[in-house]
Nucleic acid binder design. Structure first.
Lengths: 222, 222
DNA sequence: CTTTCTTTTAAGGCTTACCGTAAAAATTAC
DNA sequence: GTAATTTTTACGGTAAGCCTTAAAAGAAAG
């Protein structure tokens, strides 16, 4: 099994829980950090000292506080690691279950596993660790197993989330069109904004902008 | 200190973490449930057996799964307990930090403490437990300490929240008026719905229904 | 009971959203 | 290069939301 593990997770109760469980697996070196910047530094340090971590377990969302951070989320941490060619095995451990995000992490950043926190989160995490240790295949929680296929992509794009965000900020469709024009985001015409919004209402089964925002908020797009 | 504690929390890693920490405090009987229904039954059973729990620590959000539940959230659990006159001390332990929800829990359901999960969540929870054990005052995490005042948002009535809810469900103003008429909620006219919505937009500083829903969601009214 | 005040309802013009159609521009295919 | 396809933009009519004014109904005061 892995011997030297780094956990990036800001919630302290989860840290205690994970520490308790991983110790039971016989993992001796378990380092835990509450900020992504610390994780990055520790990983770099490990490489420098020729004692690299065997695996990184990271959350996605980290609460912002007084400490200024370069990397504010697990995704940013993963991005910089891969960008710097640091090929440490990574398992993401998060409550998020948005397929698009999972797909991105798996395919773009080549993370080795994605485990959803929940009633059986730690059990699945342990399964994922064994899985990643033994095989080269990706481990995915049952909840997000469908994210493996990189094909079906009728999901929500960055353009869409920006659109929803602007709508939730009180801009009219006309104003959004104007905003897109000014910020050179294409398509920017009122018609296009309308069309996109229509598609979103179709996908999210909303009758009007108000319900659209309600659903988008609940689903976590904005 | 409390001797018999019940924890309602669905995430298993947090359960392990809390168990580890509370055991250190010398609490002998720590029961943990992953569903609100189970929490309710256990509390009832404790009273029936004349061995009631000293305190309930509960999360707010519970993930829905195959098991059908009567009480689907911590708030519903708290509501039914207070409705049945079960005056067990309660500390809510959640990631949510919106003041309106905290205010509602504190004032309407008379919970004894509200602790935000986070980097120092368990430490604060322990502080809250001591606080509730020793005093009759409410314990609030620093993040939500401002929720103590019950003054600010008294303008928003039950009528308003229903209105916002219906709006978020995709009903047009006309349909909401119709709904009110059918359910004998007064005022029900389209004009009145408009007027009230206008006032809400004024209070919550929203430009249009979409932003209104966004703000209401964030503030926890719906 | 009458007057006064507040709340509720009604009606108008005016703006924004919604929906279909179609032209213009950009991609892709040939 | 042209033709075909998709994407983006434009326009027009209907519905919904927005805003003001004012009448009708209810509640409070004399």
């Amino acid at each position: 099994m892995f011997k030297k593990v780094l956990i990036a997770e800001d919630q302290d109760d989860i840290n205690i829980g994970l520490h308790t469980e991983l110790k039971k697996l016989g993992i001796l070196e378990i380092d835990q950090v509450k900020y992504c910047d610390d994780a990055y530094l520790k990983i770099q340090r490990g490489i420098f000292d020729k004692k690299p971590y065997d695996i990184l377990i990271t959350d996605l969302s980290f609460e912002a506080d007084y400490r200024e951070q370069d990397y504010k989320s697990g995704e940013e941490l993963v991005r910089v690691l891969r960008k710097k060619q640091i090929e440490i095995p990574i398992v993401v451990y998060s409550v998020e279950d948005n397929s698009e995000k999972v797909r991105r992490l798996i395919h773009t950043y080549n993370v080795n596993g994605y485990v959803c926190k929940g009633r059986k989160g730690t059990k699945e995490l342990i399964k994922a660790l064994y899985h990643v240790y033994k095989t080269s295949a990706k481990y995915l929680s049952p909840k997000v197993a469908n994210a493996k296929q990189n094909t079906i992509n009728n999901d929500i794009t960055d353009y869409d989330t920006l659109l929803l965000k602007k709508l939730s900020e009180g801009l009219s469709q006309k104003q959004i069109s104007q905003y897109f024009l000014e910020h050179e985001i294409i398509p920017s015409s009122l018609s296009s904004v309308e069309k996109r919004l229509n598609k979103l209402k179709d996908i999210l089964r909303a009758n009007n902008p108000a319900q659209l925002i309600a659903i988008a908020k609940d689903a976590g797009f904005i």
